[in-house]
Design a protein around this nucleic acid. Structure first.
Lengths: 204, 204
DNA sequence: CAATGTGAACAGCTTCACAGCC
DNA sequence: GGCTGTGAAGCTGTTCACATTG
């Protein structure tokens, strides 16, 4: 394909493909057609073909895409081929739920540290990790962590984000309901569950 | 404005506006300009004006939008003006985190029941609710609940969705990593946190 | 004069149709 | 025959520019 800027929406679908391919590999599939994959993910097959073609020609005409090879290509594209360390800020219910969520590992993420500011939580264990004092959040600077998951109350979100950015964090998954201000060089993905739920009654 | 189909993306932004307006009201604002609101939400002001104009002319030229009245209009549009009952399926970490999340109430949602299939959890309390046996999930049919939040492991998602649909549920917030099959008349919103996190390293 | 409301231009993404290849 | 790869068409959503109004 000629030069093309890769659509953000394409990038957003890549992790889904990766996950589906992982599952297919476990099922013993060696190849998969765009149509089969589309059925599984509730997408249309030309969409999948176009998405993958942005990165080169992975498939074989008449056959489909090689499951394992395509998966490892996607891992490379998304930079998930080397383990990605992430720090989790906020050890409330949501935070601990995320800490124990296996889905992150499957994509190559490793929760490498957990912080909270509540004295009752500091020192407690969550899985293999010990909750650290949020006052020392800036120390992650020394630990080669570039991603953060922000699961703190709205009031604390901006403040935490500032510390994280200062400590060299380059990507933040923001689960608080507030938009946070960060330098242009830091990528933020925000998810607000209440807001997502908020549209449902409209469609019902 | 002449006839226009309302973009889905516009609907997706409405709950954000609603929340921001609620917050502004607490701060004592009587009116707000599209520009101020845009700053808060990290959007552009023409976007907000266009979004709101799909539903009529809420604002006053030279002044802005009346905070309280606009909020109640949006509640009406989204059908959040009457309390919306939702059933929560899955009382794991994520489920209980959601059960106690105040953000839902703020938009007019009420978690009206919690189900789980694990015998150790059934009968336990979460807030004001008692966890019920997932085998009896179909009984929500009698309780005027039309929305569901699905926080169960991937393996159980489709099965639960089937029961929910049979029991008259019309909207599902699916937090499991699988796409679920439902009749066209049921609206599903899916959020997969791992997948959202998955794009970050690409942008870093 | 400050801010809305909106047609029109623009940008981005999806879908189509089919040529190309195994 | 079956399935990929892709330019082109179509669609959806965003941004602009400005007429309009309190």
């Amino acid at each position: 394909m000629k030069y093309h800027r890769i659509p953000d929406e394409t990038i957003r679908r890549m992790p889904k493909y990766l996950r589906a391919l992982g599952w297919l590999q476990q099922q013993g599939y060696a190849t998969i057609s765009s149509q089969q994959l589309a059925g599984q993910l509730h997408l249309k097959s030309p969409q999948i073909r176009k998405d993958l073609s942005y990165f080169g020609a992975f498939g074989t005409r008449g056959i489909g895409y090689p499951v394992e090879k395509t998966a490892s290509q996607i891992r490379q594209i998304l930079k998930l081929d080397s383990p990605q360390k992430a720090v989790l800020v906020g050890a409330g219910r949501l935070g601990t739920a995320l800490a124990e969520y296996r889905g992150f590992e499957m994509l190559g993420f490793e929760i490498a540290a957990i912080f909270d500011k509540s004295p009752e939580k500091i020192g407690k264990r969550v899985g293999a990790l010990v909750i650290e004092d949020a006052r020392f959040l800036h120390r992650i600077q020394d630990r080669q962590i570039r991603l953060a998951i922000l699961a703190v109350p709205a009031e604390a979100a901006q403040e935490c984000a500032d510390v994280l950015v200062d400590a060299g964090i380059k990507g933040i998954l923001n689960l608080s309901p507030l938009a946070i201000d960060v330098p242009r060089s830091v990528k933020v993905i925000s998810i607000d569950l209440a807001v997502e739920l908020g549209v449902l009654p409209y469609y019902v």
